[in-house]
Amino acid sequence: MTSSPRLIKTHFPVQFLPKSFWEQKCRIIYVARNSKDNAVSYFHFDRMNMVEPEPGDWPSFLQRFQEGKMVFGSWYDHVKGWWEKKQANPKILYLMYEDLAEDMGRELDRVCSFLGLSLTEEERCKVIEGVGFDAMKKNSMTNYSTIKVMDFKISPFMRKGKVGDWKNHFTVSQNEQFDKEYQKKMTHTTLRFRTEI
């Protein structure tokens, strides 16, 4: 893209961003999702994405997820790395998926403030409507329906988007084991997630 401002989307961990991002003082909006819903979403994505390795069954996938043996590494390292970078860098806005699902208008106001934008009420309503999960699920620009490596017979790219869907996948023992591991890995951070709203 040669126009300005440019928009770049990435799933990279913070340490993989080129130095130029920090030197140019780029504004960065990072969106994090709670680990349990993220694991479920990632599992279904790997099932339908023919480029990713075969995810195997849910128990083995969940174990690999907790061990950080994923394409972009550990979820724990990813979210904590960006969180730590944000503490010293005012050019990073750290958003939570759960907050977006709970109150898109409030989070849109935060994004606009961060970017120095003001919207008319009409523009604001249009954005809120356009970024809603159901609208994005129907939009071929966001639902990946035109990408041939996605097998929609297995699962849609945009499946549910619900906070708390992990409860439909985790067994009681998986949840208990996951919580123990989560506590260990998230002990030394101020970062907090909600697994339901």
Rank of each mutant, 00 (worst) to 15 (best):
M1A: 10
S4R: 08
L7I: 15
L7T: 13
I8E: 13
K9C: 15
T10S: 14
F12Y: 14
P13R: 15
V14C: 12
V14A: 14
Q15F: 15
K19Q: 14
K25V: 03
R27M: 06
R27N: 08
I28M: 12
I28Y: 06
I29L: 09
Y30R: 09
V31G: 07
A32Q: 03
N34Q: 07
N34R: 01
N34P: 02
S35Y: 08
D37E: 12
S41D: 05
S41F: 03
H44E: 04
F45L: 03
F45V: 00
M48P: 01
M50L: 15
V51F: 11
V51M: 15
E52I: 08
P53I: 01
E54W: 06
E54V: 06
P55N: 05
P55F: 02
W58D: 04
P59W: 02
S60C: 07
S60M: 09
F61I: 07
F61H: 02
E67W: 04
G68W: 00
G68L: 00
K69P: 02
M70W: 01
V71A: 08
V71K: 05
F72Y: 10
F72T: 07
W75H: 02
Y76D: 09
H78M: 02
V79G: 02
V79E: 03
V79W: 00
W82K: 00
W82Q: 03
K85M: 13
Q87R: 13
K91G: 09
Y94S: 09
Y94E: 07
D99L: 02
L100Y: 01
E102N: 09
M104P: 04
M104A: 13
G105E: 14
R106M: 11
L108Q: 02
R110K: 11
R110Q: 10
S113V: 13
S113H: 13
F114L: 01
F114S: 03
S118W: 00
K126Y: 09
I128L: 11
E129C: 08
G132E: 01
F133M: 04
D134L: 11
S140W: 10
Y144N: 13
S145C: 09
K148C: 04
V149Q: 15
F152R: 07
K153I: 07
I154E: 08
S155I: 04
P156S: 05
R159K: 11
K162S: 08
V163T: 13
K167T: 15
N168T: 14
N168E: 15
F170T: 06
T171Y: 00
T171G: 00
T171R: 01
V172Q: 10
V172M: 06
V172E: 09
Q174V: 01
Q174R: 10
N175H: 14
E176T: 11
Q177T: 15
Q177H: 15
Q177C: 13
Q177I: 12
K180C: 11
E181C: 12
E181P: 04
Q183D: 14
T187L: 09
T189N: 14
T189V: 14
F193R: 01
I197A: 07
